[in-house]
Design a protein around this nucleic acid. Sequence first.
RNA 1: GCGGGCGUCGUAUAAUGGCUAAUAUGCCUGCCUUCCAAGCAAGCGAUGAGAGUUCGAUUCUCUCCGCCCGCACCA
Length: 436
Amino acid sequence: MSEVKLEDIVSLAKRRGFIYQGSEVYGGLSGTWDYGPLGVTLKRNIMNLWWKTFVDSRDEMYGVDAAILMNPGVWKASGHIDTFTDPLVECSNCKGRFRADHLEGDKCPNCGKTGTFGEARQFNMMFKTNVGPVDDDKSISYLRPETAQGIFTNYKNVLDSFYPDLPFGIAQMGKAFRNEISPRDFIFRSREFEQMEIEYFIHPDEWEQMFEGWIKGIRMFLTSELGLPAESIHELEVPEDDRAHYSKRTVDFEFDFPIGREELLGLAYRTDFDLKNIHDNAGKNMEYTIKGTNDKFIPHVIEPSFGVERMIMAVLSSAYREDEQNGEKRIYLALPEHLAPVKYAVSPLLKNKPELVAKAREVYDALKKKHGNVMWDDNGNIGKRYRRQDEIGTPYCVVIDFDTLEDDTVTVRDRDTTEQKRVGLDELVERQDRSL
RNA sequence: GCGGGCGUCGUAUAAUGGCUAAUAUGCCUGCCUUCCAAGCAAGCGAUGAGAGUUCGAUUCUCUCCGCCCGCACCA
């Protein structure tokens, strides 16, 4: 399973309508990806599952959906304008480029020459744009490089509307943009991506136990909900040197991707850094008063930050299977049933028998009405349909044959075992599955 | 962003400075088919974009775009 190659996933994703290169007909645009009919469903299933797990099924969570364009003051205060701007210098000898603030002296780390560096140039990883019709310095804004700030800027609004007890959290899913120097590895690092983030507001005295609680919650989500194999998930305690300056503890959840072990999501204790910024810079009181007391303080924050595309890549690569069937290679996606873009494929055993087709249509309509994500498939022969559905991860293929006409039972074929069971129609339609 | 490699139907591959760019698979239409890519027949579908050299370029050259590998980057 660790032998899954990224190119196999990319090829399947394109061939079967999950993920295409962005702007492909115009030659593409580096770092962008488009989701096809199956991909968008898979993606939404994952996002809905996350929302259901961390927001809908909890009492202390609140959702928001903030604007992508924000007042540039946000990015000044957050440090993004300063720290996302890396001064780069170029060596005139070997043409290598390096971050000026990472160099020791004027010796080129590549070719070893000294005194070959030109002037440092700024490179900002935020996408800059202009708000309003006038293109001048005053109109500059940025596409958000993270969704977190849209939560912090609404912290006060949520307080005013709900005044929840601590601890409570605000969650958001949405697009973020980073002008990466080199987007790579399929959807793993792209310039436009989607985040799912929570800012969990706590009393500072409780941060350690809250942090542990989030570690457990995340583990549970990755394994029980997303169905990722526990042995492929690794928790990395990020050492102080590698942490953001405001973070007192960060744990990266890493995953064994086809491209190697890489970060899947991050969990960071951000202290009161962000709210304090707003408190100090925007002149707004961000303090929280414990109800019935005069105990006032700026809440601290624990931030789980998920990348949607990385979840998708983890799910796809851990679901990708190849095995042998009658001497032929069989490719299938062992997706958890509740994530699969198509849950049932319905076929008449034979396409040229009108009574079978009519009955199959009935079954299809009934299942579609009940479950939504059901596909009609009468292409070629039955074996071909099975293989086709295997590749897109459809857990169940329902086949209507001559017996169905007699006793209202159908064949349900299982994707992973390829075994077939005879199931009553009523039982199938009323079957409770894990809904999203 | 640097260095190297690469770019041919949806996918995977082949070939060529000159006839209609080939094969498999896929897709599609018809026939057939009583459970794991069967068969028959017809069809669709590509030289990434632009410029140059040339009588003629998919092939050679250049620019751009994109992909892959390494370096760097990944707040």
